[in-house]
C-alpha cells in the first residue's frame, strides 16, 4: 500500500482541492460583481448548471475544451439575460426570480440530458495540463497546483484583474455606486440600469464558466443536478468576502482544501462520524471569512430595484 503520506496521495489531495475550488472561485467572482452593483443573484446556481451542460455539450461535440468554455459562458449568459430583464429592467423580486431561474435550469438541463445522453453517458478524456516551469517541480504542491489545465491559471489571474477593475477603473467606481448609491450614479449621468445589466451578464458568464469547469474538467461528464448547491456556496463566499476578490479566492481555496481534508481524514480512518467530517468545509470557510472579513460591508442598495426619483 502506498500510504497516507505517499506523494501520489498528497498530490491527489492538492489537485482535488483545486478542482473543487475553481468552480466556486469563478462563480463567486461573478456573484461579487453582481452584488457590488446591487443585484443579489440567487439564480447563479442555475447559471452554473446550464453552463455545465452547455460547456460539456460543446466540448463533447467539438472535442475542444476552450470551445466548451465558450459554450458554458453562453449558457450562463442566457439565464443572466433573463435575470437582467426581469430584475434589473422590470424590477421584479431578485430572490424569487433567482430561485425560479435555478429551478428552471434544473428542469431544462435534466430534460436535455435525458434526451441526448441518458443512454450513453459519454465522458470526456483526461485533460492536458500546462506545467509551469520550476514551480511545477516543487514536491507535492508543484504537480498539485502548477501542473493544471490553463483555465486554472486564468481563473486565478481573473481575481487580480477584478481587483484592478474595482480599485483603479471607472467601471469599478460605477459598479460600487450602482450598489451603494444608485441615485448618485444616476445623477452623475451614468445609467444604473445599464451598469447593473452588464454586471448581471458578467455574473452569468462567470457562473457558466464555473459550471463548465465542473463538468468538463472536474467530472469529465455532465449529470443532472451535478452542481449540488455550489452556486449557493459561491453566493456565501461572495457575501462574506464583501467586495474583495482576493477573499473569494481564499474562501474558494479554503473550501477546496477542506474538502480534500475530509477525504484525507476518512482515508486515514479518523474515528469520527462522517457527517461531522463533511461539515468541515462549510464550517471552516464561514468561520475564517466571518472573522477576517467582518469589517467590510455589503452594498447599501443590495437587492433593491432602482427606480429613478424613488427613495
Amino acid at each position: 500500500m502506498s500510504g497516507l503520506l505517499s506523494d501520489a496521495f498528497l498530490i491527489s489531495l492538492v489537485a482535488g482541492a483545486i478542482a473543487a475550488g475553481i468552480p466556486l472561485l469563478l462563480a463567486g467572482l461573478g456573484e461579487q460583481v453582481s452584488e457590488k452593483a446591487g443585484v443579489l443573484n440567487i439564480g447563479i446556481e442555475g447559471m452554473m448548471l446550464l453552463g455545465a451542460y452547455t460547456g460539456f455539450y460543446v466540448a463533447f461535440l467539438s472535442g475542444s475544451l476552450w470551445l466548451g468554455f465558450l459554450g458554458g459562458a453562453a449558457g450562463g449568459l442566457i439565464l443572466a439575460l433573463l435575470m437582467a430583464l426581469l430584475c434589473v429592467r422590470l424590477g421584479l423580486n431578485q430572490i424569487v426570480i433567482g430561485i425560479a431561474l435555478t429551478l428552471g435550469a434544473d428542469g431544462i438541463t435534466a430534460l436535455l440530458h435525458h434526451v441526448q445522453f441518458s443512454r450513453t453517458y459519454p465522458r470526456l478524456p483526461a485533460v492536458d495540463t500546462l506545467p509551469i516551469p520550476l514551480l511545477s517541480q516543487i514536491p507535492i504542491i508543484g504537480p498539485g497546483i502548477f501542473d493544471r489545465h490553463p483555465s486554472v491559471y486564468l481563473a486565478i489571474i481573473a481575481v487580480f484583474v477584478l481587483v484592478w477593475v474595482f480599485r483603479r477603473t471607472n467601471v469599478g467606481l460605477n459598479l460600487q455606486a450602482a450598489g451603494d448609491k444608485p441615485a448618485a450614479l444616476d445623477a452623475a449621468g451614468v445609467s444604473v440600469t445599464t451598469t447593473r445589466t452588464l454586471a448581471v451578464l458578467f455574473t452569468g458568464m462567470m457562473a457558466g464558466l464555473g459550471g463548465a469547469y465542473m463538468s468538463m474538467i472536474g467530472a469529465g461528464i455532465f449529470i443532472p443536478f451535478m452542481t449540488g448547491g455550489a452556486g449557493f456556496i459561491a453566493i456565501v463566499l461572495a457575501m462574506l468576502a464583501r467586495g474583495h476578490p482576493t477573499w473569494v479566492l481564499y474562501g474558494a481555496l479554503l473550501f477546496g482544501v477542506s474538502l480534500s481534508l475530509t477525504t484525507a481524514l476518512q482515508v486515514g480512518g479518523v474515528n469520527v462520524p462522517t457527517d461531522v467530517v463533511q461539515m468541515l468545509p462549510f464550517a471552516m470557510v464561514m468561520l475564517v471569512l466571518v472573522i477576517f472579513a467582518r469589517r467590510s460591508a455589503l452594498p447599501a442598495a443590495l437587492g433593491l430595484p432602482y427606480v429613478r426619483g424613488q427613495r
Binding site: 502506498s2 505517499s6 501520489a8 469529465g220 455532465f222 443532472p224 449540488g228 480534500s260 482515508v267
Partner: peptide, 24 residues
C-alpha cells in the same frame, strides 16, 4: 464518503475516487 447526500456530485465522485486510488 463524498458528502452527506452527494448523490449527483459527479465531480466529487471523481475527486474522492482519484484520492482513494492514489492511496493504493
Amino acid at each position: 464518503v463524498i458528502g452527506p447526500a452527494a448523490y449527483a456530485d459527479a465531480a466529487g465522485g471523481r475527486r474522492v475516487t482519484e484520492s482513494v486510488i492514489a492511496a493504493g
